[in-house]
Amino acid sequence: NSLAEAKVLANRELDKYGVSDYYKNLINNAKTVEGVKALIDEILA
């Protein structure tokens, strides 16, 4: 998966839960796919 794909999928996942734009910005600023995954795990914990 590319970083861009990971960000799109992460933001879709956040949308399902009604997560605020603050967290979407964190996702969009992530530098690695692993970073995106770690943020998602933390946000949805």
Rank of each mutant, 00 (worst) to 15 (best):
N1W: 12
N1Q: 14
N1V: 15
N1K: 05
N1G: 06
S2C: 03
S2R: 10
S2L: 13
S2F: 09
S2M: 10
S2P: 14
S2A: 14
S2Q: 11
L3H: 00
L3C: 02
L3S: 00
L3E: 01
L3T: 02
L3I: 04
A4H: 14
A4R: 11
E5N: 09
E5H: 08
E5W: 12
E5L: 11
A6D: 03
A6F: 06
A6T: 08
A6N: 04
A6P: 00
A6Y: 12
K7F: 02
K7C: 03
K7G: 01
K7N: 01
K7D: 01
V8F: 14
V8P: 00
V8I: 15
V8R: 15
V8S: 12
L9C: 06
L9H: 10
L9Y: 08
L9K: 14
L9G: 05
L9E: 12
L9T: 11
A10R: 00
A10L: 02
A10D: 01
A10M: 02
A10I: 03
A10N: 00
A10F: 02
N11H: 15
N11R: 08
N11V: 13
N11G: 07
N11P: 00
N11M: 09
N11F: 15
N11T: 09
N11S: 10
R12E: 14
R12Q: 15
R12K: 13
R12P: 01
E13D: 04
E13K: 08
E13S: 06
E13A: 09
E13V: 15
E13R: 06
L14Q: 01
L14N: 02
L14R: 01
L14A: 15
L14D: 00
L14Y: 02
L14M: 08
L14G: 03
D15P: 01
D15E: 12
D15Q: 08
D15G: 08
D15M: 11
K16E: 05
K16V: 05
K16L: 10
K16Y: 08
K16F: 05
K16D: 04
K16W: 05
K16M: 07
Y17H: 14
Y17W: 15
Y17I: 14
Y17F: 09
Y17R: 10
Y17A: 11
G18T: 05
G18P: 06
G18R: 06
G18Y: 07
V19W: 11
V19I: 15
V19L: 13
V19A: 11
V19N: 06
V19P: 08
V19M: 15
V19E: 04
V19T: 07
S20R: 08
S20T: 11
S20D: 11
S20P: 12
D21H: 10
D21T: 08
D21K: 04
D21P: 11
Y22G: 05
Y22E: 09
Y22T: 08
Y22V: 11
Y22R: 08
Y22N: 06
Y22L: 08
Y22H: 12
Y23T: 03
Y23K: 02
Y23E: 03
Y23C: 07
Y23H: 07
Y23F: 13
K24I: 07
K24L: 05
K24A: 06
K24W: 05
K24V: 06
K24C: 03
K24Q: 06
K24D: 02
K24N: 03
K24H: 04
N25Q: 13
N25Y: 11
N25S: 09
N25T: 14
N25F: 09
N25E: 14
N25G: 08
N25D: 15
N25C: 07
L26S: 03
L26P: 01
L26G: 02
L26V: 04
L26F: 05
L26E: 06
L26Y: 05
L26K: 08
L26W: 08
L26I: 10
I27E: 00
I27L: 06
I27Q: 00
I27N: 00
I27D: 00
I27M: 02
N28S: 09
N28M: 11
N28A: 13
N28L: 09
N28Y: 10
N28F: 07
N28K: 09
N28W: 13
N28Q: 12
N29E: 15
N29T: 11
N29H: 10
N29R: 05
N29V: 08
N29C: 03
N29Q: 14
N29I: 08
N29L: 11
A30W: 01
A30H: 02
A30V: 05
A30K: 04
A30L: 06
A30E: 09
K31H: 11
K31R: 07
K31P: 07
K31Q: 14
K31L: 14
K31S: 14
K31N: 12
K31F: 09
K31E: 13
T32D: 09
T32Y: 02
T32W: 01
T32K: 02
T32R: 02
T32F: 02
V33N: 03
V33K: 05
V33T: 06
V33E: 05
V33L: 11
V33W: 06
E34D: 07
E34S: 09
E34F: 05
E34P: 03
G35I: 09
G35W: 06
G35A: 15
G35P: 00
G35M: 15
G35H: 15
V36D: 00
V36I: 10
V36K: 00
V36L: 11
V36N: 00
K37H: 12
K37R: 12
K37C: 04
K37A: 11
K37G: 04
A38H: 08
A38Q: 12
A38P: 01
A38C: 07
A38I: 12
A38K: 12
A38T: 10
L39P: 00
L39V: 10
L39Q: 02
I40K: 11
I40A: 07
I40V: 15
I40D: 00
I40S: 03
D41K: 14
D41P: 03
D41E: 13
D41Q: 13
D41T: 14
D41V: 13
D41H: 10
E42K: 11
E42W: 15
E42R: 13
E42Q: 11
E42T: 12
E42C: 11
E42A: 12
E42F: 11
E42N: 13
E42P: 03
E42S: 13
I43T: 02
I43L: 08
I43Q: 01
I43N: 00
I43E: 00
I43W: 10
I43P: 00
L44W: 05
L44R: 13
L44Q: 07
A45V: 09
A45E: 08
A45D: 09
A45T: 12
A45Q: 14
